[in-house]
Design a protein around this nucleic acid. Structure first.
Length: 480
RNA sequence: UCCUACUUAGCUCAGUUGGUUAGAGCAUCUGACUGUUAAUCAGAGGGUCGCUGGUUCAAGUCCAGCAGUGGGAGCCA
């Protein structure tokens, strides 16, 4: 069998030596015509393959270049040199795939993240991105494990949606109609979508929440985990046009239950990565530390990556209402000395990211859950509080990332929901499928959305969201 | 979309008040090297200075437009 080989991770972690094996992987460096640092992606650590003199002819030797793929067979022995416990003393080396050294863009040296972003198809072969995407995998696995262990049903909500009113931003249109102006038209000149593939106007989903609510009205506890799409012209380190979102929706939960679920969930998956990806996180922590050294002293973070993750897992998130947050901000020296670009004056305006950062990074120095926002700045489906001014919303803000979770208790009372939809000009006739849940056996329920990439950012210590998804999609960019 | 900085060799960057053949480190290539750890040593090749136009005797350098990238803001997850 061709693929009979041992993974490098297994060889390096085992405590055995003096046995025959075969490894396959990609050459990172080739030193002294003798030492091959081989990586197969199972771990960031390389296996040292030793090609003793005379094993290879000159022509084959020349083909062992950075990036080449090789198969090496030999004996695992305790290393004669320092720096590694074991090494492979090769008895045979076969080139599986050549890599022209003059053209292969990755060199055994430091590259900028901007450059690597241009070669996203090859950047996974670097230590940094190898670590990031193994951590990303673990986090994704932990998401499913967390909900499965608690009896949640994983719902696949549609990616193509017929609902125009998911209410979370600009949508990408999905159509098979021609774009050259010859699409069928209505009498008033608008496009006649009855002729389109689905017989109506359709878009890529911006959220699975509405469908998730329908499912929660049947299974009690559900979650979604899938891609979502926003056609916003957002050019930031925190936004993508295509990103993955986790949206649990739970019948019979109120806002406090919702907060407890979100906090437990975040702590669980971070702990899972800490417990299962120690090597990768240690590498990323060291990388971050070196990057921090470039910064001036006052901009450096007080904690290293691993300490920060441990702190989040071990400590309660700070919970306070929007109204309390406004008071803290208004009374802060920062506000009084007019250091905010947008000064806090009155109740009712939305918080700017500088305010969120102040609360999270300066005042509390831990994740913060803000609740009970003014209804004017939140979505129609959020449950109205008895004060008539606020809704049962909650946002979780993380240090360095900002909003990582947005959620709420949903409005289960049909009359209140209809009234809110009217005020916010949501087309009721298109939402009948959603309103049916309030007509037939409505119940209190709550849920939230967590941006997966933002969580990966937080756990890996990376700063640009384009570096934590394999093939990022953002304005003017859909390469690969 | 707005504000701001940047764009010079494969990569990371120098390049003075506009002045003659545009530099370095790493990478690559050639050679040396049997215990190296981003190996080391010697030598060589490599540039339409983002694109378009303008000012000038003369533009990598000054001006305008466009494009791309970084950072910040808005929108949000």
């Amino acid at each position: 069998m061709f693929n009979k080989r041992t993974k490098i991770k297994q060889l390096l972690e085992g405590d055995k030596a003096n046995f025959e094996t075969t490894v396959m992987g990609w050459v990172r460096t080739f030193r002294n015509n003798q030492f091959i640092a081989l990586n197969d992606g199972s771990t960031n650590n390389n296996l040292q393959v030793v090609a003793t003199l005379g094993l290879l002819d000159d022509a084959t030797m020349k083909r062992i270049t950075t990036g080449a793929c090789i198969k090496a067979t030999g004996e695992i022995i305790e290393s004669l040199g320092k720096g590694q416990r074991v090494e492979l003393k090769a008895t045979a080396i076969e080139i599986l795939g050549d890599s022209d050294a003059e053209k292969f863009p990755l060199q055994p040296k430091k590259h900028s993240l901007e450059f690597l972003r241009e070669i996203a198809h090859l950047r996974m072969r670097t230590n940094t991105f190898g670590a990031i995407f193994r951590v990303r995998h673990s986090l994704a696995y932990a998401v499913h494990k967390f909900y499965n262990d608690r009896g949640f049903v994983y719902m696949h909500t549609p990616i193509i949606t017929g609902s125009d009113a998911e209410g979370a931003g600009e949508m990408f249109k999905v159509t098979t109609l021609p774009l050259d102006g010859t699409a069928p038209k209505n009498d008033d000149g608008s496009i006649n979508y009855k002729e389109d593939f689905f017989g109506k106007s359709t878009n890529l989903t911006v959220s699975g929440q509405l469908e998730g609510e329908l499912a929660a009205m049947s299974f009690s506890d559900i979650y979604t985990f899938g891609p979502t799409f926003r056609a916003e012209n957002s050019n930031t380190t925190r936004h993508l046009a295509e990103f993955w979102m986790i949206e649990p929706e739970v019948a019979f939960n109120d806002l406090e239950d919702n907060m407890n679920l979100a906090e437990d969930f975040i702590k669980y998956i971070i702990k899972f990565a800490v417990d299962n990806n120690g090597d990768d996180l240690a590498f990323l922590a060291q990388r971050l530390e070196e990057e921090e050294k470039q910064k001036p002293q006052n901009e450096r973070s007080e904690m290293g990556l691993l300490d920060k993750l441990k702190f989040v897992v071990d400590n309660d998130f700070e919970r306070l209402t929007y109204t309390e947050a406004i008071e803290i901000l208004r009374e802060s020296n920062h506000n009084k000395k007019k250091k905010f670009q947008y000064l806090i004056e009155s109740w009712g305006t939305d918080l700017q990211s500088e305010h969120e950062r102040y609360l999270v990074e300066k005042h509390f120095k831990k994740p913060v859950i803000l609740t009970d926002y003014p209804k004017e700045i939140k979505s129609f489906y959020m449950r109205q509080n008895d004060d008539g001014k606020t809704v049962a919303a909650m946002d979780i803000l993380a240090p360095g990332i900002g909003e990582i979770v947005g959620g709420s208790q949903r409005e289960e009372r049909l009359d209140k929901l209809l009234q809110r939809m009217e005020e916010m000009q949501i087309p009721v006739e298109e939402m009948n499928f959603y309103l049916d849940t309030r007509r037939f056996g409505s119940c209190p329920h709550a849920g939230f959305g967590l941006g997966f990439e933002r969580l990966v950012l937080f756990v890996t210590g990376m700063t640009n969201i384009r570096d934590v998804i394999p093939f990022p999609r953002y304005p003017k960019s859909a390469a690969f």
